[in-house]
Amino acid sequence: MKPTATPLSALQGIGRRSVAQLEQSWALLSFVGETASVFAASVTRPSRWRWRQVLFNIRSAGVDALPIVGLLSFLLGVVVAYQGADQLRQYGANIFVADLVGVSMLREFAPLITAIIIAGRSGSAYAAQIGTMAVTEEIDALRTLGIAPLELLVLPKVMALVIALPLLTVFADVLGVFGGMLMARSQLGIGYTEFLDRFVKAVSVTTFFVGLAKAPVFAAIIAIVGCFQGLRTRGGADSVGRQTTRAVVQSIFLVIVADALFSVAFSALDL
């Protein structure tokens, strides 16, 4: 892959980038397959599960992220209610702010903002950690000690995030609605009891679960892309930075694509 002396034509450039992109997509797909097969193999042997690693990752990706996830979703709830307040007031439909905040937060915003924060926070950390281990020959050392890197490094992270992200999403739901509730009172004069009365009527359990169901998928995307990019690190320290950036960009991209697909699927299912 040495650059040739003459500059590439536009067409050549597009061709090369497409080939590289295809190669990477293919590698990602086979990595997903490998992870799934390691997971399937370990399901039958719970004694080999790395519980310590899973718990450690739940703490670092879940518990430690509570403040930032809480703050941002609270602010998001405030913004949604504030922006909606003007419009609703014009029609005298003040009480519908509960519908607006409830449905948009639970269904879309909370799962998405949580996934994006975690992609930036944990996806990058996974890529950097594994990438550094690849550069310092630690991954090779693991293999030669007969420890599969997928089993020790990737699987616990995926499992931890699949557990932690839904929980974080519920937390974001609560804080987001709380933010909306505060705004409803100060901007539209709707009391907390009034807001919650309407909220319970307007937001169905389905809405809550539709939002929550996305979280494990987002979690798997973030963890797998982060680990995948980390394991693809070759060469020196600069490569770790590059792979980390890639991990974040790709996982946020894929999370949003997955969210769009969910929307299509849910509307087809009339949920």
Binding site: M133, T136, E137, E138, L145, G146
Partner: peptide
């Protein structure tokens, strides 16, 4: 893999573990 040992050029020691934990890991 249990029947051979490898010493890596840069050590390949696990940075998160102490030296003794590294030796005990296998």
């Amino acid at each position: 893999r249990k029947r051979w040992g490898v010493m890596f050029q840069h050590g390949g020691l696990f940075g998160a573990l102490t030296v003794k934990e590294n030796i005990g890991l296998p």
